[in-house]
Amino acid sequence: MSNKEDINVSYGVDNDFFRLWLDESMAYTCAVFQSEHDSLEQAQRNKHEFLRRAARIDSDSSVLDIGCGWGANLDYLTRSVGVRDAVGITLSSDQYEEILRRDIPHAQVECVDYRNYQPGRQFDAVMSIGMFEHVATPQETRRGEHIDIYRNYFRRAWEWTKPGAWFALQTVIGARMPRGAALREIGWVTSSVFPGAISPRLDAILDSLSPHWEVMELTTRRDHYARTTGEWLRRLENNEALIRERFGAAVFEDYQRYLGACVMAFEEGYQSLAQFALRRIGE
């Protein structure tokens, strides 16, 4: 699992910095573009709605969001769907503070490592959007420990949910293995922007679900993430002068390189994006 220091590197630059190039909801994960005319804002709402349906959530559902970011999904669930019992957990202090500042109705947030989270109750549904990449580290994966770590994650999600629950999981996945310059760029992103994180391979996820969750639906959206990261890059570059002035040249240049590498990785098929609808097995 990425530790708190790793998480701070990835999400602790400054909330105002991320506000300058993410959409207005501050969703930092792949959007779903339903038409060529969709704005990033609309595409992020599309994503939240797609995942809400995947987790079979309605206004009466109690929902846990594992790795809730800056609260975009909690905000969508409570304000747009009418959910009255939503809980988010994050390991990022900056994200936690932002969610408190947003004062999202009917939503609670805890700043806690998921391995230490003890809800003391069971939810109707669980969601996790762009957090699974932090569950196992590159070192753990290299040592072959990642499958057991993923199984432990899915077991906890099972314990936190009621019989009949659904789980909407969205994660980047490793696809075609890069070589040469592409490998070096993707490696730089991993070590510099997302230390402690790694994109799981699809087979590793599928191997880890049993005996707790059944895959009912699986969608991949590589082209949607290429477009999402392209839009983030465009907005970052539109704010270049302001970012250089407020956050320094290195921050702008690192994030320009990182987002450029993401666009390349998704366009070239080195990485993809998977969305799962999982159904809880057993009582």
């Binding site: 290299r142 490998l183 070096r184 490696g187």
Partner: peptide, 27 residues
């Protein structure tokens, strides 16, 4: 070594020996 360096080694060997490893083997 980090994972990238291990993959860089594999890529070097692929070129040297004119072979290609499968993606799942590299993991």
């Amino acid at each position: 070594m980090e994972s990238v360096a291990a993959l860089e080694m594999a890529g070097f060997i692929e070129e040297e020996l004119d072979i290609q490893f499968h993606d799942n083997e590299l993991t």
